[in-house]
Simulated assay, not measured.
Amino acid sequence: MYGIARDRHFIRFHCMFIISSVVSSSIPSKPVSISYPVGSQAILPCNWMPQLYNVPIHHIQWQTPDDTVFEQKGEQRWQAPEFKGRVEVPEEKLQEGDCSLIVHDVQLGDVGLYESFVVVESAGTKRRVFLQSVQLSVYDHKSKVSLGVGEDMNLKLYTPKAMRVVFQKRSSKEWTVLWVRGDKANNHHFKEAERVLVIKGLRMDHSGTYKVLDFHGGSVNTVNLMVEEVAGTQTLSQIHQKQEAVGKSFHNRSSILLIIFVLQISLLIQYQH
């Protein structure tokens, strides 16, 4: 990446260009609709070849209706602060006609309309040519999971921007904070490289809804968990009930045997008399 001074120079160039450039060429185009899950890599399609065949392209711009997202001229690049380190147009693909914007770790806040332009220089003049508009939608992850008592649940966070995990029991309307990024008091095992929060030794009362939230409180991942008893495992209550049932059965059998024994003795005495 380039130094601060060079970035500032490029930003000044960008502003001067906007002021001095002629009105952009505009071709009506219906936005291409694309949708990606939060935390994934999104590709906003763009191709300049059909409109500008055999024209060398070195200057590409991507913007929303409100602001510039990304601009690249040769080796100079500029990214909006909220997209810093997350957007690119690969130079080798650009020369082949592919000006698609790659958005890494796409977020809920990235939703919106994006437009691409190229700046063409010819005979000392510059003109900005509209290429493509793209409507980006971003959705959160949702799933239902069934696990057994004593097992571990690997709760996927999907993005480094996941900040909190909250939990709601099936029988409750209240949400409890289970994990906060950077909090040393967290009781659950966090695998940062895998973007996973491990909840160990599940119990029946762990059944409920788990939500992964981003910095703005938006939902990244929602998991509805059902914890079930595993075959061969018994609760303390079940063990006591089984012991009581066995005891009653033994008592009943003993009583029957005693009655039979008494009857046999009675018959034997009568026979001797």
Results as ranks from 00 to 15, higher is better:
30 K>L: 12
21 S>M: 12
42 A>S: 07
79 Q>V: 03
42 A>F: 01
7 D>P: 00
77 R>P: 01
25 S>A: 10
47 N>L: 02
67 D>V: 08
77 R>K: 13
3 G>L: 00
54 N>I: 00
22 V>N: 11
73 K>C: 10
76 Q>G: 08
36 Y>S: 02
49 M>E: 11
12 R>W: 09
35 S>T: 10
6 R>Q: 15
52 L>S: 09
52 L>D: 04
24 S>H: 15
46 C>A: 08
24 S>P: 14
15 C>F: 11
65 P>Q: 06
51 Q>N: 06
37 P>H: 08
41 Q>P: 01
35 S>Q: 14
6 R>M: 07
28 P>T: 02
48 W>A: 04
22 V>H: 12
44 L>R: 06
11 I>Q: 10
39 G>Y: 04
4 I>C: 09
60 I>W: 03
74 G>C: 04
50 P>G: 04
8 R>H: 08
25 S>E: 15
81 P>E: 02
38 V>T: 05
47 N>P: 01
15 C>Y: 10
40 S>Y: 08
75 E>F: 13
19 I>F: 08
43 I>G: 04
68 T>C: 07
64 T>P: 03
66 D>N: 10
23 V>T: 11
13 F>M: 10
56 P>M: 02
64 T>N: 06
49 M>H: 07
68 T>K: 06
80 A>Q: 04
4 I>Y: 09
71 E>G: 05
12 R>Y: 11
18 I>E: 15
18 I>M: 13
25 S>C: 08
82 E>V: 06
25 S>V: 10
74 G>N: 05
65 P>Y: 02
59 H>Q: 04
48 W>M: 05
62 W>G: 07
38 V>K: 01
